[in-house]
Amino acid sequence: MDEKKAAILGEIPRLRRYARSLLRDRDSADDLVQDCLERALVRLDNWQTGESPRRWLFTIMHHLFIDQMRKVNRRGEAAMLPLEASEAQAAPAEQVESIASREIVDALQAISPDRRAALVMVAIEGFSYAEAANILGVPAGTLMSRIARGREELRALLDDTARRRSIRIV
């Protein structure tokens, strides 16, 4: 197997983690990764040697994700309303998660896809602002505001969940 393919294989765990944070449902996330890999293999010649395979693959996957989310949004013609994500979750997560873990995963799913991607890219995947802006194809300022809004929104949802939980206990 050639070097490029070996490098791509090595990135699959990271791609799966990113996809899981975007989509949550395991099978759907792996389908996204598979689409990404198939597209990458077709375009193997576009990948410049010396360019990080990670950045190249993340860019491909992000485009696939955001294109589809846009289609969904256009048909919806309305803004996303941050419902409690557990209500919006079609497929239950199969793994056993702690309550805290489930709450933050739910909250992450409830924030807008653009903010979710920006936040995950930096906070979980550890890309620099410059790298993340490049992958997402937005100016650095836009990236920063998405990260900031994303964090605020996430925290507000978590505070809200915590408040509701304490009300329930009382």
Partner: peptide
Amino acid sequence: WWLAAAAAAILVI
């Protein structure tokens, strides 16, 4: 895969 996203979004929209 994105149908799952769509199915989730349908409740959000």
